[in-house]
Amino acid sequence: MLIRTALLVTAAAAILAGWFQLLRFSRTPGQQAAAPVMLAANVALPVGARQSPLLVFIHPQCSCTQATLQQLDRLLADLPETNRHFPTQLVLAVYSSAATGSRLPFVPAVWLHHPYRILADTNGQLARRFGAATSGEILLYSPARQLLFQGGITPERAQTGDGPGLESLRKALVSGQPTLRYQQSAVFGCPIFHFPIQTRVEQ
């Protein structure tokens, strides 16, 4: 009886700790930095002049980012081009380095069924410029290069489903007006950088 009680108490403590750890990991957002409100003209993006850049910063090895792409895919399916305020161009800025390589270990087309472009972000220079410190951060600019949305669109780490971030991006795409900015929508994913970046970047 004593052994059974000790077993139950120990197991209950371990289970409680595990449950809280799971919850903590799932809802602990990644680091965010303020993106430039206006996109500089010298930033070269594979986006047409009248198109609205929709940037997604990805760490190639982050499995949680699959959820971000699934969310994005669902959103774009719900909002065909005709329903968007501006025509958009989806750009996947993939972190690459000597360690990670330049190829994605996963095929985005598995989750994304819309046209996109891949931009190799060597050593994360682009991400640093846009203040994207966590894989899965999304930035939406208008064709006039005004920041309309910054943040994540998953409710939890690697979780799909409705959330304020997804809803705000939808509104931004439809209205063409700014909805969310820095730290107004948490990003859940792996850090793109090994160390924290500055909270403000050069414009």
Partner: peptide
Amino acid sequence: ISPFAWAADVTYLHPHLVLAILYGGA
């Protein structure tokens, strides 16, 4: 789904995997 987590170039076991083993084990 999520065997590893990354921080730039540093890789480590994904917490999901660790929890699956330990928490799931408990």
